[in-house]
Design a protein around this nucleic acid. Structure first.
Lengths: 215, 215
DNA sequence: GTATGTGAAGTTATTCACAGCG
DNA sequence: CGCTGTGAATAACTTCACATAC
C-alpha cells in the first residue's frame, strides 16, 4: 500500500481501460462474501494475463500482499483514487434525444462518481421534460449551469451535423472532457480530451471478426 | 485497387477501431462535394498520423493512387467489404430497458449494415411494446428468431446479474458475437467474440486524464 | 506452497523516410 | 511536385521468469 509514484504521464491508455474493467468486476465482488482477489482472477475479466494485471496496478504503486493477493475493498478505493472518482464529478448532457433519456435514467453513473446536473437541447418541444432527476433546459442555459456547478465533463448526444459547433461552445464554457456519441470527429484544443463512443463500431468489429472467421 | 491479401489473422485491433472512424468520416464526406481524400485528412479524425492511415489500409490491399489519394466512394466500399457490412446483418437485442429502447429507435445501425430483428425480455409488463420496427417479445422466443433469421450477433442490455446466464443461452442458440452493455464480464467459448461497451469507463478515462492534468 | 512486484526479454504497433508512381 | 506504399527503425506494450514476501 505505497502511494502512487507515477503521477500521470506515460500511463498506457489500454491500462486505464482495463482498470475500469477491474473496477466493475470488484464492484460485483463486494456483493459476494469474497474479500480477497488475485491477479489471476482479475485477469479473467479482461481476457488478459495475471502479469498484465500486476503491471497495470504497479504503474500506480504497490497494493497487494505477496502470497496473498489484493483486498477487494482496498483495491476499489485505489482505482477510484486513480480515476479521481472518490468524489462526484458533475456532468452535463447536450442533445436530448433517446440516448440522452436513457443516460439520464441510468443509475450507474451516479454510483460510480458522475452526477448528471443538466441536460440541454434547442428543440422547444423537448424543453421541460424530466428524466431521472434532470429537466431538459434550453442550450442557452448551459454556460450558467457549467459555471454554477464547475462542470468539467460533458456528454455529447447531438446529431453529427451539430457536433462540432456544440463542442466549441462547450469548450468556450469551460468543458475539458467530452464523451462524444455523435458520429463525427471533433476538432478541439489540445488540452481538451475527447472520448468517442461509436456504437456501430462495436458491431463492425464483431462482424469483421466473424467475417474473417478468426476463432 | 488490389484484392485483400491478408484474410484475417494478425490484424491489429486498434486498426479495426480506426477503420470504423475512417468510415464514419467518409460517410459524412459523401454529403459534401469532395470526391477524394488523402491519408493526412483521414488521420485528422482519429488524431493519428498519415502513415498510420496508410498502414491500416495497406493491411488489406492497395486502394489509393500515388500522388492523388483515395476515392471517397471506393474507400467506403472497401471498408464495408472488410467489415462484411455490404450486406445486412440481423441482430437481436436482449434486455428491454431504456438503453434497448434507444437502440431500437436509432437509425444508424440499419444504415450501416445491422438490422435489429428482435428484442426480448422476461418482464411481462414490457412485452408487446413497440419501438422503431421491433416489438418486445418474451425471451423464450429468442431461439426461434435466431434460427429463422440466421442471427449471429446479439446486443446484451440485461442487468449484470443476468448477463452470464443470458449470454450462455444466446451462445447455445447459435450467437457468435455479443456486444455487451452489462457491467459484467462474460465467460464464453473461445470461438464466441465479446465486445464490451462500458459507458462509465469513458467518463472514468476522461476524469483520470483531467485528474492527472495531462494536457 | 502461493501470489506479488519487477528487471529483462519478447512481441506488437507506430513512425520514419524514401522509392515509386501519377 | 504530391501522395501512396512499404522496408527499416523506433517506440509502446506485453509476457517471461524469478526474487521476494506471506
Amino acid at each position: 500500500m505505497t502511494a502512487p509514484p507515477a503521477d500521470n504521464h506515460n500511463i498506457p491508455d489500454p491500462s486505464i481501460r482495463r482498470l475500469s474493467a477491474y473496477l466493475r468486476y470488484l464492484e460485483n465482488l463486494v456483493t459476494t462474501e469474497q474479500r480477497r482477489v488475485s491477479s489471476r482472477q482479475l485477469a479473467g475479466c479482461v481476457g488478459g494475463s495475471d502479469a498484465q494485471v500486476r503491471r497495470d496496478l504497479a504503474l500506480f504503486g504497490q497494493f497487494g500482499r505477496r502470497g496473498v493477493g489484493y483486498e477487494v475493498d482496498d483495491l476499489i478505493q485505489v482505482i477510484r483514487t486513480i480515476f479521481g472518482t472518490r468524489r462526484q464529478w458533475p456532468v452535463v448532457v447536450v442533445g436530448a434525444g433517446l440516448l440522452c433519456q436513457a443516460l439520464l435514467r441510468y443509475q450507474g453513473f451516479k454510483q460510480r462518481g458522475f452526477t448528471l446536473v443538466g441536460a440541454f437541447d434547442t428543440d422547444p418541444r423537448k424543453l421541460g421534460a424530466r428524466y431521472g432527476d434532470v429537466t431538459i433546459q434550453h442550450i442557452d442555459e448551459v454556460e450558467a449551469v457549467i459555471a454554477r456547478h464547475h462542470v468539467r465533463l460533458a456528454i455529447l448526444t447531438v446529431p453529427a451535423t451539430a457536433a462540432q459547433r456544440t463542442a466549441e461552445r462547450l469548450v468556450r464554457a469551460g468543458i475539458e472532457g467530452i464523451m462524444n456519441f455523435a458520429s463525427a470527429s471533433l476538432n478541439v484544443p489540445a488540452d481538451v480530451h475527447v472520448n468517442r463512443v461509436d456504437l456501430t463500431a462495436s458491431l463492425e468489429q464483431l462482424s469483421f471478426q466473424l467475417s474473417s472467421h478468426r476463432s
